[in-house]
Computed example of a mutant assay.
Amino acid sequence: MIALACLLLPFGALAGWAAYGLTDTGRYVRTMAPLAADPAVRDVVADTVREELADELGPPLRGPLGPFVRDAARSFTMTDAFRAGWDAANRVTHTAVLHAVREGDSGRPITVDIAPVAAEVRRELLDDRVPLADRIPVPHTEVAVLPAAEADRLREGYDVLEVAAFWLPLAAFLLAVAGITLAGCRRRAVTATALGTALGGALLGLAVAVGRRLTLAGLPATPHRPAAGAVYDALTATLRTASWLLLALGLTVAATTWLTTRPHRNPLTPPAPRPTETQT
């Protein structure tokens, strides 16, 4: 029972992080907000703007004008308007994805309306008294975030996560309590549970590190990997903290149990004499 509880613990922490930690829109926006100042993220945004404009306006922006457009986009990423648009984009995207996985119909892609993002950028520019900012259009344009096939897989995975996030931690706790209660030596059972908890925390931290490596290795564009790494680190910060807490808690309880079970001898008390055999 104790071994099974320690095995379920990291999976329960992972499921709880995905089902509860990533589904809070406010927390998600606050987590992603500092990335607006990350140089790697700014470079990706500038490159994306240049590529999109080049696709729309043709070869001139792929030639000598390309670097100027990228520099202009890079300068914009350092403004308050960009940070406002970044937060608005993350908020509307997260809300749309969350609504789709919870209440959306199967077979339909996940889309977002970019009008709130454009409105937030225009408002920030108006506050900064940028000329002609009032003429920035706010179109209601639907942009696809995930195709229908991936959206359906996300919905199925979310349903499984909601169940696992509740039952896995509960099952791990009940199994640990039952194992300690039924053990012949409860102190040893507590020590084993604590060491298993520490091992589960270490495995969870290792899984986060391996997941980061696999995520970045699967990206086709090498220049975008630093930005993807920054996003991954921001999203998994809570999970890494949980792994360290499990490791520290398990080792602390194991050490405390071991120290309290060691035999103590009073140094002022002489050792008991050994019985001698009587010679006949």
Rank of each mutant, 00 (worst) to 15 (best):
T260M: 13
R188C: 09
G157T: 01
D113V: 07
D71F: 09
G107W: 00
A89S: 14
A5V: 06
L247N: 02
V92I: 14
A144K: 11
A227V: 11
R91E: 10
A198C: 02
P39I: 04
D128S: 15
A242H: 02
T260D: 13
P39Q: 03
C6K: 10
A13V: 03
A46D: 01
A228S: 13
A151R: 00
V97I: 15
V163M: 11
R274K: 14
Y20L: 13
P263A: 11
L154P: 07
L7P: 03
R108A: 13
A18F: 12
D159I: 11
T191M: 12
L57K: 12
G211H: 10
P271K: 14
L98D: 05
A227P: 08
G250V: 01
L199V: 13
R62W: 06
L247R: 08
G218C: 02
D159Y: 12
L247I: 06
G16S: 01
M32W: 04
A207L: 13
V101Y: 00
P131L: 06
Y158C: 09
E124Y: 10
T222E: 15
V145G: 06
T111L: 08
P109K: 01
A194F: 02
A3D: 10
T23H: 06
T23N: 04
Y232H: 14
T236G: 06
A72V: 06
P64G: 15
Q279I: 14
P270Q: 04
A207N: 12
P34I: 05
G179C: 02
P139H: 10
G104K: 00
A96C: 10
R212T: 12
A230S: 08
H224Q: 14
T280L: 14
G66H: 03
V177E: 06
D127C: 05
F76Q: 09
A194R: 03
L14D: 00
A13K: 00
A202S: 15
G229P: 00
L161I: 03
R91K: 11
G66A: 02
E277C: 12
R102V: 11
A209Q: 11
L146Q: 10
L57I: 13
L203R: 03
L98K: 08
E51F: 01
F11K: 14
T252H: 00
A3H: 09
V210W: 01
T276Q: 15
A18C: 14
L203W: 06
G229F: 02
A81I: 01
R129G: 04
L65G: 09
R187F: 07
P116D: 11
V112L: 08
D38K: 09
A176W: 01
I2P: 02
W17F: 13
L14F: 11
V97S: 07
A5E: 11
T95F: 05
Y28D: 01
G196P: 00
V112F: 03
W244G: 13
D134E: 14
